[in-house]
Write a protein that binds this DNA or RNA. Sequence first.
DNA 1: GTTTCAAAGTGGTCATACCAAAAGGCCAAT
DNA 2: ATTGGCCTTTTGGTATGACCACTTTGAAAC
Lengths: 254, 254
Amino acid sequence: MDRRFQEIPRERVADRIASELLRMISSGELAPGERLPGERQLADMMGVSRVSVRAALQQLKAQGFVTAVQGGGTRITAAADQLDSALARLVRANRNNLHDLAEVRANLEVWAARRAAERATPEQLAGIERCFAIIMSPDRPSRAKAEDDLNFHLAIAKASNSAVFMHLMSVLGDILEQMFAFHRYSLYASPADDRRFMEQHRAIWAAIQRGDGDGAEEAMREHLNTVLSRYEEEEESEAQVPTAPPRPQAVAQG
Amino acid sequence: MDRRFQEIPRERVADRIASELLRMISSGELAPGERLPGERQLADMMGVSRVSVRAALQQLKAQGFVTAVQGGGTRITAAADQLDSALARLVRANRNNLHDLAEVRANLEVWAARRAAERATPEQLAGIERCFAIIMSPDRPSRAKAEDDLNFHLAIAKASNSAVFMHLMSVLGDILEQMFAFHRYSLYASPADDRRFMEQHRAIWAAIQRGDGDGAEEAMREHLNTVLSRYEEEEESEAQVPTAPPRPQAVAQG
DNA sequence: GTTTCAAAGTGGTCATACCAAAAGGCCAAT
DNA sequence: ATTGGCCTTTTGGTATGACCACTTTGAAAC
């Protein structure tokens, strides 16, 4: 036999099935939330054994594209959750570099503030203002402050008009807060910190409102430097991370 | 029968195995590159069937923690590549938002230029200078220009002293280049574009060399704006984006 | 119309066998 | 001692059939 040709290794069956299913999902042939055919039926359709179908589904499950429930069938995961789960895994796999992640996230947010100031639509500005009004109202329960704060930042991210960027920010922020117990410091923050944050938020919103990109960037940078320093305090007091790198640097200054 | 208790759904066997293996990997019990026991042996050790072991390995494979090769065994993926594969999947799942990704990547790179200007070590500066000398030498074959250019940008990213950030940049840039057929425009770029890029590179390096953060940021921003406009031209002319091939190679170490 | 509950359907696990490819040992040729 | 080819062993990949755990569903009972 002559095998000089066909140097490409034959594609594994399970991978072929996974690609086929993923193509259906991406092309919208299968809508999110929809239940796809049973494993036995799929195996019959594709002309392979159920083992291979299951192997393919294992991949898609692990990557967050589908969700299986014993006895209930396998459904397509919502599109937004796919990006989220991918990022969640990314962060889980690199939790030793938390500080780097926090720094990257802070940098992205600074950029978002500039873009929001320069290119936000009136509707998006109104959204930011709504969130701003909430965090400035004095009668909010302190346990809601963390969420209010996050919503304010998310509104700014939204005003950057980049879906990918917004998800990136949302998930990074979400996971970082979980890990650093962000809500804890937010709950027990001293009144001085509380006032400081309010001033910073006010400065950010003011700069965005008047379309001042430089000002928005600078205000956000200062705010996040404060937040980052809180992260570091939490990090030290938690003493959970074994390989905690002693990197006391904040975001670069403008 | 009374089932008031035990409301927690029993953990699936495959998930238990996957968690166990992942724990071994994360704790360093199994070193990267090391070959873990065969599936049959593993099944015997854990007291489950080979099918369950395979299901667990499917997960870990799909998430990029291990790499299996038929007949060769299953090995722990290098730590750096884990981040890469996670990001690659992230991008694959969102290829409809390519422009957003490109913009985010550009923003990160602008920030890296500032950090490099402000905080690079002498060794890192020397590395940037080496790459700069290469891209400025007139006798380089044009087919190597794309790689030289990438190395220059990577050297700057490295000088930002953030491992996560460097990987982020590297992978984003790598995938974007594949998708946009970056090398093509680079090969056939007009002499005018070529000169323009050289000037921009020179400006970036000059600013970094004199520690001018503002100047480095501005120079890199201008450069990437030019590159982004080329991306957009490619995007329009390409019409159809081919499937991204897998990335078999690792990234430069920091 | 509502509730009950058993059958059907679905994903999860098991055991066994065989296939395909790489690893490793062996031996002849150099 | 080294190299190259051959063959056995090992290891991952697929197939088949069966059974288990759970959910869905719809018909029967109220």
